[in-house]
Design a protein around this nucleic acid. Structure first.
Lengths: 329, 329
DNA sequence: GTGAAAGCGCTAACAA
DNA sequence: TTGTTAGCGCTTTCAC
């Protein structure tokens, strides 16, 4: 494979000049430029990225840590991230942690081994103290998930508000006995529960601890959850869920148990994924502006890369969130 | 950041010895190994990937070209690919073409610029002649989608058989007027249509050209398709679709038009994505062993990397495919 | 406006 | 078993 040296020789010029042409530097005569382009074409020359990276100490690549791509939320987020990245000549390295701490750490090493210039977390497995030490090696941003101890910029939604609005929506429809299902491993999950509790408290409703379900995420979890509800002597009239998948599982399994939705059980989801609209009844849910969040995040990342002393600014960017009313409530 | 030189100095050894320890070479005494590890730890040393890649001319990275991650088929395929890749210390570089020829070409350049060692296509945008020239720069495999002119290994499903079985299933349920919806831009799509025609022909049924719909892929497309059916004087009693998304759109929109499924219109999908089971009625579909296909593909890729003269073997690996019977037929 | 030369950080002959 | 040395292919001073 041809190297810059080969091109230089064929063009009768020095490596430096070829490099200048390659990088669009000024002060190269059009004539020499032409010579270089011709030689490059003839030799089918393409610059070796590893050499460029070694020399410039930049990779123009951003690592994006996601739990798993099979959760449709993340492909949409990635679409937003990518739109901006591509526009500025950056590449995404998509890393699936599968909720594994060790894997997350191994991806943090991408920063140390200079495989990426920056890192975007869309979920966090380790505690902040562990992650914090890496921030000297490159900019990091939290996107979607967040931690209050974090000392890096955060792009997020107001989750308290999201679940507050969702729960209010249930209450406005006349529900007084509302179950809750959500995560607790992240601050995001905790905030959602807080929003839920706030809405209930405001209306003078009490939280029934028996109707609190935690750390369920999949369709399968939703099915199991419904079966548990069925076995109860006294059932809630509505359930708030922290994900469209769980809601989908509940709705699916409700069918098997002849429980009518929303009449016997109202269900509200979270995310507004494509399935929300396809379910029968269609799912009322809380829409997250996923693509926008990705775009904002990448814009911030590129700004941080261009302006390193920005990294210490602990800004929090918050995006709007809204209830999409369909048939399940 | 510490370099191998720093480690060598601190350990009182040469760079070579440190490198040997790094790469688990034999012939290093345990004592020196210990010294090296100690120094590495003390300096928080991590090898610079770009330097390693430049030197070894390997990246241990495989590019995976997918149309888009928001189509759930691909995240599942990637899961299979990744399982094997990770096991052997390889990284995936996931590239979304968004069905764009230019983008696909730009990803082929990853091979030329030495950013990846090999390339896996899960869909093809350009014609084979264009792609063919790149195969001198690294192993390539077609996975899922295929082309008969292709001169690289192919891991695929028997699409003719898949749609043949699906159509047979419809016929066995008593349907004689069957519509078809599928792609034509790929051989995969053409083969599917062939399987459809074969099943019809075998049963002495005729293909109604008015009921042939082409190049529809999304949920939205499915909705539009149903609306078209509604306007027809004479409607088919069943429809074969080339994707679960289109099928989902049809089922959703059928509801709006009060068309009962499967009574008035039977629908069969393709893929067996998670939504298939969630739809109401649940979707009869053709299951592709997506994860397995990914695993097989990556195993083959690693074998090709290890054994370069394998690249010319034009083998075709075919995986089984089956009809999953649910309620929509 | 162009070229010579140094060096990014690493590995692998080769020599010892 | 270890060290010396020569690059991998590129960019970027610095000098002209």
């Amino acid at each position: 494979m041809a190297t810059i040296e080969d091109v230089a020789k064929l063009a009768g010029l020095s490596r430096s000049t070829v490099s200048r042409v390659l990088n669009n530097h000024p002060y190269v005569t059009d004539e020499k430029k032409r010579l270089v382009y011709e030689a490059m074409k003839q030799l089918e020359y393409y610059p070796n990225s590893s050499a460029q990276r070694l020399r410039t100490q930049k990779t123009d690549t951003i690592a994006v840590l996601v739990p798993r791509l099979t959760n449709p939320f993340f492909p949409f987020l990635i679409e937003g991230l990518e739109m901006i990245a591509v526009k500025y000549g950056f590449q995404l390295l998509i890393c699936q942690t599968h909720h594994d701490k060790e894997k997350e750490l191994s991806f943090l090493n991408l920063l140390l081994t200079k495989q990426v210039d920056g890192l975007i977390f869309t979920a966090i497995e380790n505690d902040w103290a562990t992650i914090d030490s890496f921030k000297t090696y490159g900019p990091m941003i939290l996107c979607n998930e967040y931690m209050s101890e974090a000392t890096v910029p955060i792009v997020r939604l107001d989750q308290v508000k999201g679940s507050y609005l969702g729960t209010r929506h249930l209450i406005e429809k006349g529900h007084k006995e509302i179950a809750y299902c959500g995560g607790t491993s992240s601050e995001l999950g905790i905030d959602r529960e807080q929003g839920f509790r706030k809405a209930l408290a405001e209306s003078g409703l009490v939280v029934n601890e028996k109707w609190l379900f935690r750390d369920l995420y999949s369709i399968e979890c939703g099915k199991t959850l419904l079966r548990k509800l069925v076995e109860m002597d006294h059932r809630p009239s509505a359930i708030f869920t922290g994900s469209d998948e769980v809601a989908a599982g509940i709705i699916r399994e409700a069918k098997n148990h002849k429980i009518r939705i929303p009449n016997e059980l109202a269900v509200i989801g979270f995310d507004d994924q494509p399935i929300a609209e396809l379910l029968e009844p269609s799912l009322t849910t809380i829409r997250q502006p996923t693509r926008d969040m990705g775009m904002k995040t990448m814009e911030l990342m590129l700004a941080m890369l261009a302006n390193p002393n920005m990294n210490e600014a602990r800004q929090i960017i918050e995006l709007p969130i809204q209830v999409i009313s369909r048939e399940s409530v």
